[in-house]
């Protein structure tokens, strides 16, 4: 009995010898795995950390001025004179300008972008499609300062001559520049959504006697509507956050936007143009403007997520 037991333990010992090396090896692999895992986690946390840091910072530096000025006076004040002897910090003109400017860009840009994406996805021959798509990508890659420069040299004098107004810089010029800038995001995302519509849907529609155009607008577009809506929201986000190009063509005077040719200032350009020399309450108020802008962007992102999630759940 005892002898037998001994041999069995011997056997166990013998058999564990190679297994021990194996275990050691596996343990090392596990450590390596953990290290790599940790590095990836850390890299991922950088992005999250940045967002958190910016959010917290914006709130901390944006709230005091709102508190001092009073939230109603700040959000609904119609006059901004930050460096005057008797400073006024009302940002209603900027909020309205940002909303009008973005809405105008969407009204101009979305029909063009939408039609272009239907054409690219469904009608265009592969060669035309590839040429046009690379042109759209290029449009997305042009730096915004270049848009601003072209706007300043071509668009602003153009508007002055066409509409016979004293000066072309203003809301309309900004809207046109923004409309062009949001085209690539709208087109690219809509094309992806339309391309993803199963071919069978369209085949079925065609087999029932619908013409191709009927099929695209009655079948493909409704099937891709979440993606297209997301594309529009993405465009809105791009338009409301743009600063550089707008600053060069909008005139930047803090007027209420009551005409298309009015010289206006956006939320973004207020921060961009005054931050460099600002001090005291003016600087704090600029952080508050940035906070308001940030709220808008968060709202837009939430809307975007809503559309994308709905698309994903389908």
């Amino acid at each position: 009995m005892a002898k037998k037991k001994k041999t069995s333990t011997e056997q166990v010992i013998r058999s564990t010898e190679p297994q021990g090396i194996n275990l050691d090896h596996r343990k090392k692999k596990q450590i390596l795995e953990n290290i790599v895992h940790g590095i990836f986690l850390l890299l991922g946390l950088i992005a999250v950390g940045c967002v958190l840091l910016i959010t917290v910072y914006l709130f901390i530096s944006g709230i005091p001025a709102i508190h001092k000025i009073g939230i109603v006076d700040f959000l609904f004040g119609r006059e901004w004179a930050s460096t005057a002897a008797d400073p006024k910090y009302g940002i209603l003109p900027f909020i309205l300008t940002s909303i009008y400017g973005t809405a105008g860009a969407v009204i101009l840009g979305v029909p063009i972008g939408f039609m272009t994406s239907v054409y690219l996805s469904k009608i265009a021959s592969p060669r035309v499609k590839s040429v046009m798509q690379s042109a759209v990508s290029l449009l997305a890659g042009i730096p915004s300062v270049v848009y601003g420069l072209v706007g300043m040299l071509v668009l602003v004098p153009g508007i002055r001559k066409v509409f016979n107004v004293p000066d072309g810089a203003g809301l309309l010029a900004a809207i046109i520049v923004l409309a062009i800038m949001i085209l690539p995001s709208i087109i690219k995302m809509s094309v992806t959504a339309l391309d993803a519509v199963p071919k069978e849907y369209e085949d079925a529609s065609l087999a029932l006697g619908a013409t191709p155009i009927e099929t695209y607008f009655r079948v493909s577009v409704p099937a891709a509507k979440s993606g297209i809506a997301a594309a529009v929201v993405l465009g809105v986000g791009r338009a409301i956050g743009e600063a550089m190009a707008v600053m060069m063509v909008a005139g930047n005077v803090p007027n209420m936007p009551d005409s298309l040719f009015q010289s206006v200032r956006f939320l973004t350009t207020t921060v961009a143009s005054e931050m460099a020399y600002s001090s005291g309450l003016q600087r704090q108020a600029l952080f508050s403007v940035a906070l308001v802008l940030f709220m808008f962007i968060m709202l837009i992102n939430a809307t975007l997520n809503f559309f994308l999630k709905r698309d994903g759940n389908k």
């Binding site: 300043m152 004098p157 000066d167």
Partner: peptide, 27 residues
């Protein structure tokens, strides 16, 4: 003219001011 100027455009650099003036005969 402190705080009394009725600007039509407020630009953020000297270069932009020069470009705008060179583009508009009445500027």
């Amino acid at each position: 003219t402190k705080d009394a100027c009725k600007y039509r455009q407020e630009l953020t650099s000297t270069g932009d001011v020069i470009t705008m003036v060179s583009q508009n005969p009445n500027a």
